[in-house]
Design a protein around this nucleic acid. Sequence first.
DNA 1: CAATTTTCTGGAAACGATTCCAGACTGGCT
DNA 2: AGCCAGTCTGGAATCGTTTCCAGAAAATTG
Lengths: 373, 373
Amino acid sequence: MAVTIKDVARLAGVSPSSVCRALADPARVRPETRESVERAARELGYHPNRVARSLITGRTANLGVVLPDLANPFFPSVVKSIQTQARRFDYAVFLSDTDEDPAVEVPAIRALAKQVDGFLLCSPRAPDEDLRSFAGEKPIVVLNRRITPFPSVTADSTGGMQQAVAHLHALGHRHLAYVAGPRTSWSNRDRQRGLRAATAARGMNLVEIGHVAPTVDGGAAAADLVLATPATAVLAYNDLIALGLIQRLQARGAEIPGQVSVVGFDDIPVAGLVGPPLTTVAIGKEQIGRVGVDLLLELMADAPARSAGPGRRAAARMPAAPARSVGLGRGAGPLPADAPGRRTASRDSTGTARRVLPTQLIVRGSTGPARQK
Amino acid sequence: MAVTIKDVARLAGVSPSSVCRALADPARVRPETRESVERAARELGYHPNRVARSLITGRTANLGVVLPDLANPFFPSVVKSIQTQARRFDYAVFLSDTDEDPAVEVPAIRALAKQVDGFLLCSPRAPDEDLRSFAGEKPIVVLNRRITPFPSVTADSTGGMQQAVAHLHALGHRHLAYVAGPRTSWSNRDRQRGLRAATAARGMNLVEIGHVAPTVDGGAAAADLVLATPATAVLAYNDLIALGLIQRLQARGAEIPGQVSVVGFDDIPVAGLVGPPLTTVAIGKEQIGRVGVDLLLELMADAPARSAGPGRRAAARMPAAPARSVGLGRGAGPLPADAPGRRTASRDSTGTARRVLPTQLIVRGSTGPARQK
DNA sequence: CAATTTTCTGGAAACGATTCCAGACTGGCT
DNA sequence: AGCCAGTCTGGAATCGTTTCCAGAAAATTG
């Protein structure tokens, strides 16, 4: 039914091998051959079957992206940047939304494993050891979490929390509350850790409120608990929770920021549009995806498709992933962080890359001077 | 490197064909064979290579989703529901974001064509004839647009606009403005058409404001133009534009809804969180994806992978797509529209399915009585 | 012009699974 | 015991492409 390489070969009057060569690497055939093959291919509308190709080359030109919840506006931003960067290198993207269910993650990865050249795991929720079982099988880069031995891209939660706490301290707040996200979220632990350090450093009081879903509803559910504490300001695991908090706090009659200040995390696109606009810690969502893809491509270049030996032939046709693209810095986001120097790149003791992206407090309307007791 | 069917065969002491049979259809081998194959497979951690399988079966168990912009919160909702429904039938999802560029669409489809069993095109922006060139090649279902000969899932824009206009009319508005979305968007034309009909029916005045990007910035750009008209209420192509309008109108000192009422379209998740909460026309985003997948699976069952003849063998192992799943109605959304009767299913003259999903006006805080001149 | 290198090409093998076909074995029946 | 139907299995072919290998043709050299 579909037109194959044989059809082209027949029409062009050459062998399938020559068609392959003519299309893959025109320099390796006589100009006349190239010409007639190209004409035949065009005439028949031939497009090589990537499935068949990947069977023999071991490369699929696909990337797998696994994330917990596309309904959280943070993730579409990341996926979009992944998509953009992947397309630049002619990679297509598989998407798998696990719906915040850790148990779905491993099967999801497993299902995609043979169809992709590598994975980007965004904020994976599965236990470390489950994920580690994929080490060595496929190149994997983890976003928003650190699991040896995988390269990772994370945000500087500590720095962000320090900025946020400094801001609140300057406004006179001394009693803070933190509304925690999912128990299985590494980011949550990271942010919580950063917040504890920051409050401790300034001798501030911190109340932590249980684990809630990282959604608007989760935030709403925590609001009443917040009012029951002496906290004059509350920091949320993420913006969605913060939005839910504001919503419910206002419904309870609490003025924001008059009675309670609220700080989010992520700076999702709508953060500035709500009433009052949300003060939040911004992280470079576009950078996460871009850096993640670059890291993954580097990793894939090191661990080639089939043979383990370095310097494979196929690598020649693979677009160069490394330095060049990293340095491009196209589409500088709102963060001034795109300057090379600001991005922290390090390697741990085993040599795996760890990129930590800078964070930045965006002060909007949801924070103000602490109320007087 | 990876474990293949041969390895399993060797360990189990049988031929590769038997391994295949034992795993695919246990009833076709002796229980002992099945047992030893399963043990060997488990021991080696064997997972069949889906790429190799699809080469011979012609089925990939992948779906392709193409959409214009994941940053528009409308699309993640749709993708998520597609993903959920696809997973239920063991399909994986390829995602391609075209960044609102019509020219990218056809190559994007082309690149995925050989790796998927069918496509869901969400709000495609490419010209009809370009997309029609894929007819017959692959099963395609179009969402938010109608292009013969493809089955489609659309929202009842006319009904939605009628509700919105009735609402505004009742509030005393007589002069309306419409801020149009992308020129290439079928939905925009559909909504515009519906709005014209609705206003004409009531003898209301309608000013149409040029095509803007379907984003917050697009809305902000149109705000000043709105103020220059006699309109007391403005309807936007979508919620993002409406949000941008509100933002900029407020910045210009216009009270909302005191001076201008604003109506959006889509009911994106944040619509209720902004200040003031947005009055908007809701469409069943979860339904769109679910119905789209069901329609596509039906279509794929009719037009099987390889041979054109009906009643293929492979179809037996493919989960039944039709009625059963459609009727499930799991996870009923906020719309009462999940009841079977309310969803309009029709077929045009050529017999292609056209599902039109109901819309519903959600009245929130951004609309109020018309200001007195 | 012969010898040698280089360029170019076709045939065959390979990738990992599925499926067809035919042969081996089992069991039931006469 | 002999025959037949049915069950179960292994070998071979297949999917569409890439790649290896060897041979043919062309170009270069002495």
